[in-house]
Design a protein around this nucleic acid. Sequence first.
DNA 1: TAGTGGTCTAGACCACATC
DNA 2: ATGTGGTCTAGACCACTAC
Lengths: 233, 233
Amino acid sequence: MTERSSSKAQAITSEVRRRIVDREWRQGDRIPDEAELAVEFGVARATVNKALQMLAEEGLLDRKRRAGTHVTVNPARKATLTIPIVREQIEQAGMEYSHRVIAQKESPIPAEIARRMELPEGRLLIHLRTVHYGDGKPFQVEDRWINPGAAPGVAGIDFHRVNANEWLVRNAPWLRADMAFSAENANARDARLLETRQGSALLILQRTTFNDLGAITTVRVAFHPGYAMIATH
Amino acid sequence: MTERSSSKAQAITSEVRRRIVDREWRQGDRIPDEAELAVEFGVARATVNKALQMLAEEGLLDRKRRAGTHVTVNPARKATLTIPIVREQIEQAGMEYSHRVIAQKESPIPAEIARRMELPEGRLLIHLRTVHYGDGKPFQVEDRWINPGAAPGVAGIDFHRVNANEWLVRNAPWLRADMAFSAENANARDARLLETRQGSALLILQRTTFNDLGAITTVRVAFHPGYAMIATH
DNA sequence: TAGTGGTCTAGACCACATC
DNA sequence: ATGTGGTCTAGACCACTAC
C-alpha cells in the first residue's frame, strides 16, 4: 500500500483512489470483490466494505450486489457547500458583525412563496427583511418568511433584538431543506440595501426548511456583488 | 422506535433525528452514550455507532471521545450539489444537445489562471472556449485551460470532434477539486455567445481539478440567465 | 485515570441481480 | 441457482481527553 493513514479503511480508500487516478483500474472496469481485497490488504471484509462504501458515496465507484464493484464511467461531480451562519462568517473574517431589520410584519404570502413552502396562498406568515453588515459594509440582504405553525414560539419574538437565523437554528431544527443558487440583477431595493448600483449581478441563495409540521421558513439571501461561495471536494 | 426503515442503523438515525426535531434532546444536550443506546434499541454498539456517525457527518451531532455525544449548538448547513455532465443534463431535460468550439489554441496562461492552477505564469496550455446548446438555445459557455503535463495524451486531441469535459472525465480522473460559485454581469462576449444582453446576471462556476501531477484543468462556466443550481439535504 | 467514541475482526445471515 | 455487496453481532483493543 502506498499510503499510511490514520485508519486501515482510510489507507484502502487512498490506495484504491490511486489505482483509479493512475489508470490501473479504468473507467468501467470491474475491480476485485471485497473478499479478494480483504485478503490482498490483510484486513477483514468489513473494513474493505467501509472503504469502498466511502468511495461509492464520493461517486468514484458503482456498487451492485451480484454485479460487483465498477469504476464509475461518468462520475457526476459532487460538491459539498457549507452555508455558515452569517454572523460567524463575518466574525471569522475578522470583521465586526451588525445587522438591521428593515421590516417585520405579518403578511399574507404571495403565490411564489406559497409554492415554495407548500402552503395555501394568502396564509398569514411573519415577513422579515434584514441586512447583515461586516464592519458596517452590507454583506447580505435577507428576505424571509416564517411559519409560526411549524415554529412554535416564534410569534412572540422581536427580531429587531434577536437574529432570526440564530433563533430558528436553535429553536426549530429541520428535517429537510430545499436550496437553490442563481444569479439576479440587483433590483432597486437590493441595490439600495447593498449600497451598489442597480443591475449588479448578485449571487442569490434560496432556502426552504421543513420539519414534520411543514415548512418552517423560506429565505432569499442576496450576497454583495463579488461574493463567491466556495465548495470543496 | 417510531420509524421502521430498511436497516436498523437507518431506523436509529430517524429516531434520533425525531428526538432532536421534537426537542426531546435540545441543542447542547448530551445524549446517552453508545452502550446505553445499544441496550435501548436492542442492537450491537457498532450499529449505534454507525447511526450516530451518519448524524455527525450531517452536522446534527458533535461527538468527542470521553466527552460524549452532544446535539450540535449551531449546525452549519451543509448542502451537496451535483454538477452533472452538460450533455447528460440537457438530454435528461428532453432537449437535443449540441456544442460548438469557438476557439482551441495553445496560449501562455495569464496570471489569474496561473494562480488558480498553481502553475508558473506564461506556461503554454491548451485554451478552449465552447458553447453548449439545448435544442439550439445556448445553455452554458465554457472557458477552459488544460494542462497537458497533468493530462497525458491530451495534446493530440481535436476538441472540435470530442467533448472536452467528457474526454477529461474519462481520461484524467482527479484527486482534488476547487470550486466556487459567484455571479457576474455578462460581458460583451458572454452576452453574444449566450444570446442575451450585456449586463445580464449570470451564475458562474469556476472549477479547478488536480491529480498527483498537478492541475489538470480549470474552467469557468457561465450559465444562461435564469439558470438555478439545485442542492439537496 | 477512567469513560467515551473509533476502529477492527471473524463470522454470520440476508437481499438482490444476474447468470 | 449463485455470487456479490449490505448489514449485523459480540467482542476486543485503542486513542483521546475531560475529569
